[in-house]
Amino acid sequence: MELIKAFWVGGLICVIGQILLDKTKLTSARILVAFVCAGCILGGLGIYEPLKEFAGAGATVPLTGFGNNLAAGVKEEIDAIGWLGIFTGGLKSAAGGICAAVVAAFLAAVFAEPKGK
C-alpha cells in the first residue's frame, strides 16, 4: 500500500515537471531550481509535511522533498539554537545528500570516461 501511494504521488510530481518542460521550454536546471524552491516554501508553510506523511518516498524522493528538507532543517535548528539556525539549519539538513552526490560523482569521474550517444 505504501508503495502504491509513493508511486502515484511521486509520479504526479514528475508529471508537473514534464508539463513545465514541454510547455515552457525551461531547461532541466531551471526545473530543478523551481522544484527545490517550491518544496522549501511549501515546507516552510507546513503544507509539504502532511504530503510526506501520506506518500513517504513519493514526496521525499522528488527534489521538492529535498527543498522540504531544507525548510524542516531550518525550523528544527532555530528551535534548538535560536537565530543562528537561520544560517546553519538548511545546509546542515542537506549535507548528507550533497556530500553523497559529491562522493558518488567523484568516484564516477575517476572510474568512468565520457561516453558518446
Binding site: 508503495l3 504521488v9 514528475c14 522528488p62
Partner: peptide, 13 residues
C-alpha cells in the same frame, strides 16, 4: 514521466 518517476519513488519507498 508518471510511470518512470513513480517507479523511482516506489523503489525509494
Amino acid at each position: 514521466a508518471f510511470f518512470s518517476g513513480g517507479a523511482i519513488c516506489a523503489f525509494g519507498e
